[in-house]
Amino acid sequence: MWNWKRLGMAAGVSLTLIAAGCGSSEEEASGSDSSSEEVSYGEEMDYEITGVEAGAGVVSKAQTAVEEYGNLEGWEVSTSSSGAMAAALGEAYEDEEPIVVTGWTPHWKFSKYDLKYLEDPKGVFGEEEQIKTMVREGLEEDKPNAYQILDQFNWTTEDMESVMLDINEGSSEEEAAQKWIKENEDLVAEWTKGTEEVDGTEVKLVYVMWDSEIASTHVIGEVLKQQGFDVTLTSLDNGPMWESVASGEASGMVAAWLPVTHGSQYEKHEDSIVDLGANLEGAKIGLVVPSYMDVDSIEDLKAAE
């Protein structure tokens, strides 16, 4: 992991917004009540978008945005990890300092902080996404009960964010998953409906180390354990995660963001992987800022001087 640059460095970016109704010097001379106000983040932003892992789709799209939007000339996307991004966001938010991060929904940060996506007029980040379940070829024949549970797994953004927030506030992944399962027994029963308990059948699930995928994978992993499966959960980078399912090394994953975030990986492996459909609708990626920042669109950001 790389060391985060301290916020508040010199040579930042100016974001100049003129208050609605401001007037020209002639209008002011004529007695207008209009006034103008300049809000500058120039010495604090250092032309930097705070990113996550270098292989993440949202980082790739942020880099594309820097190329596509002329007003982002001179900007850089700094890569690290989702945890480091969240830490930087939290520090900036606490001090009401400006920050732009690569963000996605679901994520606990939207429950903890007042945040907003920057509008994306060029559509670089695409529309809403689905999080889909992918399994290896032959799983339905080899392990039909595991296949059916994974196929029936489906929940909401609110469900996922509640698990993520519990983990962020100190619960272990297993504790947070078990708590959610206990509080949502009716929904879990829908996932296991029509299946039989097993005795130690092995299931290997893989996931990328994003807060959202940590939550979903541990929840479905706990459900499979309660049904008698011997479950192994392994975190991998994006590419290896897809390759492990496509090669049959892993049983499956519930962490496929499509069509944008993992689009290139899906195109590479779609002929050797089984798509079980969406387990969550309405996922989203983009550039995210605290709501106290007076900027609403990517186009409101200013090029480096």
Rank of each mutant, 00 (worst) to 15 (best):
K284G: 01
E44D: 08
A176W: 01
W180E: 01
S34R: 06
I149N: 15
E68P: 05
E190G: 12
E43D: 15
N71P: 14
A88C: 13
V101C: 07
S111N: 15
V100P: 04
G138P: 13
K116F: 02
E38D: 13
I131C: 04
D46F: 07
A88S: 14
M164C: 00
D271F: 03
P98C: 07
D237R: 10
A19I: 13
V223H: 03
Y147L: 00
V223Q: 03
S216K: 06
D46N: 12
G70E: 07
Q130K: 10
N3R: 12
A84M: 14
I167Y: 11
T261F: 10
F153M: 12
P106R: 00
V77K: 02
W257V: 04
Q226W: 01
P106Q: 02
G51A: 01
G221T: 04
A177L: 05
S60Q: 14
E43H: 15
A146E: 11
A177K: 03
K112G: 02
V223C: 05
E44I: 09
V188C: 09
T232L: 12
V101Q: 06
E190W: 10
H262I: 09
G239K: 09
P240T: 06
V231L: 04
G200D: 12
H218P: 04
I131Q: 02
A283C: 09
W180I: 02
L224W: 07
S78G: 07
M45P: 02
V39N: 15
L280I: 07
D120Q: 07
N154M: 00
W4H: 13
M1V: 11
T102D: 00
L301I: 03
D199G: 11
E48L: 06
P259S: 02
A54C: 06
W108S: 00
E249Q: 14
K182I: 08
T16P: 05
L15S: 03
M293A: 15
K284W: 02
L118M: 06
G57C: 11
A177W: 02
T234Y: 11
A86Q: 08
M160I: 14
Y113T: 13
V206N: 06
V198S: 02
W180L: 01
E173M: 00
P98E: 05
C22S: 14
M45W: 06
G277F: 01
E299K: 14
Q152I: 07
F229K: 00
A92M: 02
L258R: 12
V59F: 06
A278R: 14
T79N: 13
Y147D: 00
S40I: 07
S244R: 03
E183C: 05
D95T: 09
G239Y: 09
I273Q: 04
E129N: 06
A62V: 03
E97Y: 05
S297W: 05
A304N: 14
E140G: 09
A19P: 09
A92G: 03
L115R: 09
L236A: 01
E267P: 15
E196M: 12
V101T: 10
D159R: 01
